[in-house]
């Protein structure tokens, strides 16, 4: 089957500095691909090249068809949270504007937006201002905007940044469900454990592609150390993989001042120091 998007020997830089070199990547229909790598590895630049927001300096990027429907969920930090829009209005932005020239949405458009919000379990928040939602709910609103356009390829830039573990798990759950239904998904993430648990194909990036394959093959101490230039511990239990960076080689003692002469406090002494707050008396 032909890839939906194909990158051949792509290089890209800002000024004289190349942030991406010699990138060969094929995104096939129905794939769920996670891009991992340290900050500054070129993950967001690679997404923007795929979305044609940037133009490669070298190489070529081909789409299977010019009208391939791709939608994008940007990093949560790029959103202006004071902008006066409700969750529903954000979702409605994702609809094809050429089909309705009037400024107000048609009844069926609102129904579709509402259905997607309901599906992502935030239908009751449709009329809330986006600032008044939690991080996980905000992410789901932007996911809903991407889904309302009925995309063939869904691109997400760090969808779990700034959300708690449960919300992150929820987002990956929804992405897995969408992928099972046939949607092609490409995302970047810093959450290696979530990627190991949910993403079937991982691309490890640091200016170039360090390695790509299933998480069982990619999440090894050698590959991660090579990509992140750090020291990693990878634990495996049954089908699960846990990734943790090793602490600083000098340990905490040199980073933090000693609160107790002779070393760091043990657990019991910490327990004595931190007292639980007594419950307030009711009148």
């Amino acid at each position: 089957m032909d890839p939906l998007i194909e990158l051949n020997r792509v290089a890209f830089g800002y000024g004289s500095f190349n942030v991406l070199d010699d990138i060969d990547l094929h995104l096939h229909p129905g794939q769920f691909v996670g891009l991992v790598g340290p900050s500054g590895a070129g993950k967001t630049s690679l997404l923007k090249l795929i979305l044609t927001l940037l133009t490669p300096g070298e190489g070529e990027i081909q789409r299977v068809r010019p009208d391939l429907r791709i939608t994008y969920v940007p990093q949560i930090e790029t959103v202006d949270w004071s902008f006066p829009v409700t969750a529903e209005e954000v979702v409605l932005m994702g609809l094809d504007h050429r089909r309705n020239i009037w400024p107000w949405p048609r009844r069926r458009e609102r129904k579709r937006a509402r259905e997607i919000l309901e599906r992502l379990e935030i239908g009751h928040l449709a009329q809330r201002h986006i600032r008044d939602l939690s991080g996980g709910q905000q992410q789901r609103v932007f996911l809903a905007r991407a889904l309302v356009a009925d995309p063939e390829v869904l691109v997400l830039d760090e969808p779990t940044t700034g959300v708690d573990v449960r919300s992150a798990e929820n987002i990956f759950h929804w992405l897995t469900v969408l992928n099972k239904e046939g949607m092609t998904i490409l995302l970047t993430t810093h959450d290696l454990n979530m990627a190991a648990a949910h993403v079937p194909w991982v691309v490890c990036l640091n200016r170039r592609i360090v390695a790509q394959g299933p998480p069982q093959e990619i999440f090894t101490e050698e590959i991660l150390s090579d990509a992140y230039k750090g020291n990693f511990i990878v634990l495996r239990q049954d089908d699960m993989i846990f990734v943790q960076q090793r602490p600083h080689p000098h340990g905490l003692k040199e980073v933090l001042p000693d609160p107790v002469e002779g070393g760091l406090p043990d657990h019991d002494s910490l327990k004595k120091t931190v007292q639980p707050i007594p419950a307030s008396k009711e009148a």
Binding site: L51, T78, M93
Partner: peptide, 20 residues
């Protein structure tokens, strides 16, 4: 007649471009 396009462009011009 360009209410929605202006709204999306004002909200996030870069993302609006991706949405056509």
């Amino acid at each position: 007649f360009f209410y929605k396009q202006l709204l999306f462009t004002t909200f996030n011009s870069e993302v609006a471009q991706v949405y056509g």
